[in-house]
Design a protein around this nucleic acid. Structure first.
Lengths: 213, 213
DNA sequence: GACTGTGAAGCCATTCACAGCT
DNA sequence: AGCTGTGAATGGCTTCACAGTC
């Protein structure tokens, strides 16, 4: 296959466009221009067109894009036409919140199991999702064909959990622990670092950086 | 004031360096080189030096950086030498998890109050943090001199909550709702979009993008 | 007339490579 | 000899501007 060198920023915008289009579609809107998408999601119109152009020609000159059609294309591009089973490691507050987060379900992610080391949590259910002991991780990943794992454990355990996920052939990890973790290059890793995000804000406040949006 | 054009990527790395240095400091390590920092946080050595060089000359040629010293400088740069009071809007699962998140406290963020519209939650305490009705927002922001607000409400209410925060003179907003929100340019805004992060991973899996770390 | 698709230009961040200290 | 600080080179993303299409 081809498909070369898509900027990551483009991918994350596609995800945002997709949500926007889904809203438009529900409202029954048929056609939309790059300018209107741009306005709706807060980017430039040229940016929208360029992002889409990486993947083909979805629009009609003089008219715009068909909402349903474009939306389907983007879902396809993002791999969201099928549902993704996901495991969450760590049944603390954050792990639990992520499990119950509607945003995941709405986008086709399906939390199939949680894992924890705490005997008080193991074998309990949290809103229909069972918490398993770590030993079951491999079995469940295999059984449910899980490709993605979410790490929501304390920083000091993040690396060993990551290693465990890797050993069980996970394809991608979303890490919420405030820790730098290392994985083999064939495993996808993204970090969502909550305090880093707040700290960028404090930096900006303290240095009164002009916002650029 | 001076201090111009710092890449946002640099700021977020500073935050990561800072955490790394704090770990080193606790271990009693006195001196460190850019190469070792680079290794520890997974970036290039030149990157580390350039990031630091935006703010001054903190190292000694031929030797490296003094851990304590550099750490203090970075905390100062990020505005973390003082504690920041924060409010969280939305006392659902996510809002609650964020309130209890240790990573915030450890870095000097202090959640002073939560807010919600649900009468069942209002005036209850969650681990020492009181949930107030939305009407109290203005008073508490003023009384506690809150500069930062965290939005953890459903997407459809995110914009009106943001407007409310802005009206009450908040300086910065961290938005967890999967929604595009607009604020005046003098207000700092960052979005942490949980599903976007998972969707980047699905994209990468589906298009088997080589990881670059 | 309106709007897409796209090469070219512009801008910004990262990496290189080396001069300058210790 | 070792390591920082930095100008210059590179690479990548965004914006511009316009030709092409409906």
């Amino acid at each position: 296959m081809k498909m070369f060198k898509i900027p990551e920023a483009t991918v994350s915008r596609l995800s945002v466009y997709s949500r926007f289009l889904s809203k438009l579609d529900k409202k029954g809107i048929i056609t939309i221009s790059s300018g209107e998408i741009a306005e709706g999601v807060g980017v430039g119109a040229a940016q929208v067109r360029k992002d889409l152009a990486y993947f083909g020609e979805f629009g009609t000159r003089g008219v715009g894009y068909n909402v349903k059609d474009l939306h389907q294309h983007i879902l396809k591009i993002l791999g969201l036409t099928t549902s993704w089973p996901v495991v969450v490691i760590g049944a603390g507050n954050l792990g639990t919140a992520l499990c119950l987060y509607d945003g995941f379900r709405e986008r086709g992610f399906n939390i199939v199991a949680m894992f924890d080391v705490d005997p008080l949590k193991i074998d309990k259910e949290i809103e229909g999702i069972t918490v398993y002991s770590m030993e079951k991780l491999g079995d469940i990943i295999k059984e449910k064909e899980v490709k993605m794992g979410v790490i929501a454990v304390p920083a000091e355990y993040a690396q060993q959990i990551a290693d465990l996920l890797v050993k069980n052939n996970i394809c991608a990890i979303l890490n919420f622990a405030p820790a730098v973790i290392k994985v083999p290059e064939e495993v996808q890793l993204r970090n969502v670092d909550l305090s880093v995000n707040l700290e960028i804000l404090t930096f900006n406040i303290v240095n009164n950086v002009k916002n650029l949006y």
